[in-house]
Design a protein around this nucleic acid. Structure first.
Length: 280
DNA sequence: CCAAGGCCTGAATG
DNA sequence: ACATTCAGGCCTT
């Protein structure tokens, strides 16, 4: 009998979805927007605000999802090896800023920038006798100067970050609305934000806005597709253009189905582990 | 529509 | 040491 319900926290947190998590003793602590989550070793979540969260998407029917995306040997191998890996449902604004920062960067640097931004603009709180900074509210970042944001080590992305925060402030970007839209409509809207292209958009949609058919195609995923699915998806070029991205996504969702995003997460995790990449 | 080049930064590589 | 390259893209030309 396969256990579909037990979450592997370690694998989930170290799979490129979140950046502000640390383990202290037997607990994981993570910044999630205007709150801090605490997870014990049996996976139970408590929070600073005492609000409830379905951060690890417990309501997803994993048995059904795994059945749905088990299309070939490669996915089956990844699913078996990383059973317990989950997609998260994180705070959308934090996710949005995190992945704007992620472009042309790497995990350590993303983490370091986000820590600096939180330390400078996020409210400091005490929880469990420890000190934490919450993630800044949109208006705090919207009102910052380029220099202040640049001092957090984000370089040329500073202007993107501020303008993106302004769009949230003005409700040009409304996460509650985006969460209700389908993938295509939500993506079209979020692509209007400076610093957000196809890949970053798909990360935000998948990790914070419930679009399980989003399938972020970064260098790693392209590498994986070239390795295992070269003929299936008729891959040709290395640097993919916007048009090619759309065509590829179409083929991929047709193949993996409505939970394609889960397939992406398992394949990504497997390949990264193969290369023994450091996460946090 | 596509291709090429530039971009902050810091860790890794030569 | 020091210079160059590269990293989970995006934007402009």
């Amino acid at each position: 009998m396969i256990d579909y319900n037990t979450i592997n926290l370690e694998n989930t947190i170290n799979s490129g979805q979140v950046f502000l998590w640390t383990k202290q003793k037997e607990f994981w602590y993570g910044v999630n927007g205007q709150d801090i989550l605490k997870i014990n070793d049996s996976g139970k979540i408590t929070s600073y605000s005492k609000k409830k969260y379905d951060f690890f998407r417990d309501s997803d029917d994993m048995a059904k999802i795994i059945r749905s995306i088990s299309k070939d040997k490669t996915t089956k191998m990844a699913l078996k090896k990383y059973l317990g890996l989950r997609l998260v449902r994180q705070d959308p604004f934090q996710c949005y800023i995190s992945f704007i920062i992620s472009s042309n960067s790497n995990i350590q640097k993303i983490k370091s920038s986000l820590e600096k931004i939180s330390a400078k603009f996020g409210r400091k709180i005490q929880f469990d006798n420890k000190e934490f900074h919450l993630f800044p509210e949109p208006k705090k970042i919207a009102n910052a100067t380029i220099q202040e944001i640049q001092n957090c080590g984000v370089g040329y992305r500073a202007k993107f970050i501020i303008d993106a925060a302004k769009m949230v402030e003005s409700q040009q970007i409304d996460f509650r609305y985006l969460a209700k839209c389908n993938y295509q409509d939500a993506k079209k809207i979020i692509l209007t934000v400076p610093g957000i292209g196809n890949k970053v958009a798909d990360c935000i949609l998948l990790f914070s806005l419930d679009k399980l058919d989003a399938f972020p195609l970064d260098r790693w995923m392209i590498r994986i597709l070239e390795k295992y699915y070269l003929e299936k998806f008729e891959l040709e070029t290395k640097s993919i253009t916007e048009k090619q991205y759309d065509i590829l996504h179409e083929k991929i969702t047709k193949y993996f189905g409505p939970f394609a995003g889960y397939a992406q997460q398992f394949l990504f995790k497997m390949e990264r582990e193969n290369y023994q990449k450091k996460w946090l």
